[in-house]
Write a protein that binds this DNA or RNA. Structure first.
Lengths: 187, 187
DNA sequence: AACATTTTTGAATGACTATTCAAAATGTTT
DNA sequence: AAACATTTTGAATAGTCATTCAAAAATGTT
C-alpha cells in the first residue's frame, strides 16, 4: 500500500494560514489547492471535505496555542509575570502588518449560527484556556477572586483581539490593560 | 418619472439582519432577494452591488448604535451610570438565543485583509465610539486617565462581544467587568 | 390623455463553488 | 518481480455565485 506523499502537519499549517486570514466562507478549496500544492482528490481523501480540513486546522491551531500558553506560564517566575508576557506577546502580534486577530476568536464570530460544530469547537478551546488560567489563579487566590480574574483576563485578551486592528494601538492597549488589571506585576 | 416602491430603510434593516448574522461572504444576494422581497435588478439599481448594500447597511447600523449610546449617556444621571447601563444592555443581548455579537466587530474581523474598505469603515465607526467615551471622561478626569479608561471600556466591550458566546456567561461577565473597572458606579 | 423618466421584472450570463471518480502512479508485502 | 492496497491525478459535475439587461410596468409632468 502506498503512503501519503505529503506531510500532514505542513499541509495543515498552510491551511491554518489560509483559513485564519480569509475565514471559512471566503477561503475556497481552490485556494487550498493552490496553497498546499495538493490536488483536490488528495485533499478530500485525507480530510473528507472542507469542514474536515477546517476542523483539523482549527484543532492544530488550538493545540499549538494552548501548548504555548502552558509553556510560558510554566517558564515564568510567577503566574502574573507569565500572563504579562502573554499579553505583551499579543500586543506585539497586533503590530504586524497583516495582523489577523486570533483564529479561534474569528471562527467563533464567523460561524456562530445555531449549533455550528466548528463554532462550538472554537468556543470549547477558548474555554479551556480560561480554565487553565483559573487553575493557576486558585493557587494564589480564593475560588471567587480566581474566577473573576480569569474572566477579566479573557475579556482583556478578547478585547485586544478586536482592538488590535486600530492603528498604532499598542501603547494605548498597554495603558488600558494596566488600568483594567492593576493586580498584575507590571514591569 | 417613477419613484422607488420600497422603503429604503426597511430594506436596509432586513439587509442588516442578514449580513450581521451571516457575515459578508456567507450571505448571498439570493438570500438578500429572499429577505427583502425585491428582485435582483431593483437591488442593483438602488445599491449598485453587494458591497454597496453592505456598506449602507453597516453605516445604518453604526448610526443607530452611536445614536443609542449618545441617548443613554445623555439620559443617565452620570457618565459612569450611563456606561453601566450600556454594559448591562450588552450583557442582556448576549443572553439571546441567537446572539450575534456586534455587526461592526464581526465586520472588522471578517474583512480585515489588506486595505478593505468595509473593514476600514467598521474600524472608523468603532473609533468614533471610543472618542465619544473619551470626551465624556475628560469632563471628570485628566486627559491621561480619560484616554486609558476609554480604552479600558472599549477592551471590555469588545471582550464581551466575544465572551458573550460562552454559555451562561452573563453573571461571569458582570463579575469580570466589576473586577476590571472598579471605578464605575456599580449598583 | 400623452409623454418622459424611472423602476420593476425575472430569466439569462459566465464565473466560481465544493466535490467526485476512473484511471494512473506509487509504495509495501509476499 | 508479482500481487496488492493505497494515493495521486486532473478533468468533469452539478450547483451556486454576483451581476446584467431588454422588455414591461409604474409614476410624475405636461
Amino acid at each position: 500500500m502506498a503512503r501519503a506523499q505529503f506531510d500532514r502537519d505542513e499541509v495543515l499549517d498552510k491551511a491554518i494560514d489560509l483559513f485564519w486570514h480569509r475565514g471559512y466562507s471566503a477561503a475556497s478549496m481552490q485556494q487550498v489547492v493552490q496553497a498546499t500544492g495538493l490536488k483536490p482528490g488528495s485533499i478530500y481523501l485525507a480530510f473528507e471535505n472542507k469542514e474536515g480540513l477546517f476542523r483539523e486546522s482549527l484543532e492544530r491551531y488550538a493545540g499549538k496555542t494552548l501548548a504555548r500558553v502552558k509553556e510560558v506560564l510554566e517558564g515564568a517566575p510567577s503566574f502574573g509575570e507569565g500572563i504579562c508576557q502573554i499579553l505583551e506577546s499579543n500586543i506585539k502580534q497586533s503590530c504586524d502588518n497583516d495582523y489577523c486577530s486570533c483564529f479561534l476568536v474569528k471562527t467563533q464570530l464567523e460561524l456562530a449560527s445555531e449549533g455550528n460544530e466548528l463554532h462550538q469547537l472554537a468556543s470549547d478551546k477558548l474555554n479551556e484556556i480560561e480554565a487553565l488560567f483559573r487553575s493557576y489563579l486558585e493557587k494564589e487566590f480564593g475560588p471567587e477572586v480566581s474566577g473573576q480574574r480569569a474572566v477579566s483576563i479573557m475579556l482583556h485578551i478578547f478585547g485586544m483581539r478586536v482592538y488590535g486592528y486600530q492603528p498604532d494601538s499598542a501603547d494605548r492597549m498597554r495603558g488600558g490593560l494596566r488600568e483594567g488589571m492593576p493586580w498584575l506585576p507590571w514591569a
